[in-house]
């Protein structure tokens, strides 16, 4: 039978084994449990109140792993990320789904993690390790541990854009989602980061589009180049929502809309 254990102090967490799941908001683990909990041997239930805190730290903002989407939406420091938090489910889901959980949400979920990828967040593990979110997502499923928090740099709201494409509104699963960090200095773009959700088995960066934009001004020629290169780094697949072919066809179109919205 599946054991459930409270974890009041995340720093004293036992080393998780392969059949251990961490329960925070419940939108993934409870769903699995409702459907039989196959493959789950033990559930660690996060109850450490420190994990829900959001506060400034250095030049950025630290978001506890158990902070919910509603918590993010209530934090003025995180305004740039509000559009991404706002599209996670309906209000009830946003009261439950956590930032830490979103890092582990399988395709086609994980729009918020994708936004964190574009924001170049750092992931802090409960054992003290920290690593860039891209590395954490890349090893997802192969590494074990409990995420305690993520830190995001302070983002200018005007330099961060998010777009979710879904068939139903306001709540629908992503056909794809896009986030772009477009820092500017002296009329030119700095180091651009563009993330795509639901265009692979995890949030991925559109490295071709990033290179086409970084260091250039955001003019039609640069947008054309970014759209032409936007599939570099992405690995879309067929799923019940859309085919790989469709996703490849529309990805440049939605990236163009997002970029033109910025100008």
């Amino acid at each position: 039978m599946i054991e459930i254990e409270r974890l009041d102090d995340v720093a004293r967490a036992p080393a998780p084994g392969p059949d251990v799941r961490v329960l925070a908001g419940g939108t993934l683990v409870m769903r699995a449990l409702n459907y039989g909990g196959h493959g789950i041997g033990r559930i660690l239930r996060l109850t450490d109140p420190a994990l829900r805190e959001i506060h400034s730290e250095g030049g950025g903002v630290r978001i506890g792993a158990a902070a919910t989407m509603a918590d993010v939406l209530a934090a003025p420091d995180l305004a740039a990320l509000h559009p991404a938090a706002q599209v996670v489910g309906g209000p009830a889901i946003r009261n439950m789904a956590t930032v830490g959980g979103n890092l582990f949400a399988p395709h086609p979920y994980g729009d918020f993690a994708m936004a964190l990828l574009a924001a170049n967040a750092q992931v802090h593990w409960a054992d003290g390790r920290a690593e860039p979110i891209e590395a954490m997502l890349g090893a997802r499923g192969r590494s074990a541990g409990i995420v305690a928090a993520v830190t995001v740099p302070r983002l200018q709201h005007s330099e961060f854009r998010f777009r979710k494409v879904s068939r139903t509104k306001p709540k629908g699963v992503s056909l794809m989602s896009i986030a772009a960090h477009l820092p500017r200095a002296g009329g030119r773009l700095g180091d651009v980061r563009i993330g795509f959700g639901a265009m692979g088995d995890r949030p991925l960066r559109a490295t071709g589009a990033e290179q086409a934009l970084s260091g250039r001004s955001l003019d039609p020629a640069a947008i054309d180049a970014a759209c032409a290169a936007c599939l570099d780094g992405l690995a879309p697949a067929d799923d019940p929502l859309a085919s790989e072919w469709y996703r490849r066809q529309v990805a440049p179109i939605h990236l163009r809309r997002l970029l033109e919205e910025v100008r």
């Binding site: 459930i4 419940g26 939108t27 009261n95």
Partner: peptide, 27 residues
């Protein structure tokens, strides 16, 4: 649905809507 899709199980916890099917009873 038991999976957070439909909202039929919505209850208020401390005044805020939650999906009771995705909430551990103990919580």
């Amino acid at each position: 649905c038991g999976q957070g899709t439909c909202g039929a199980c919505t209850v208020l916890i401390d005044g805020e809507p939650h999906l009771s099917c995705l909430t551990l009873a103990e919580a």
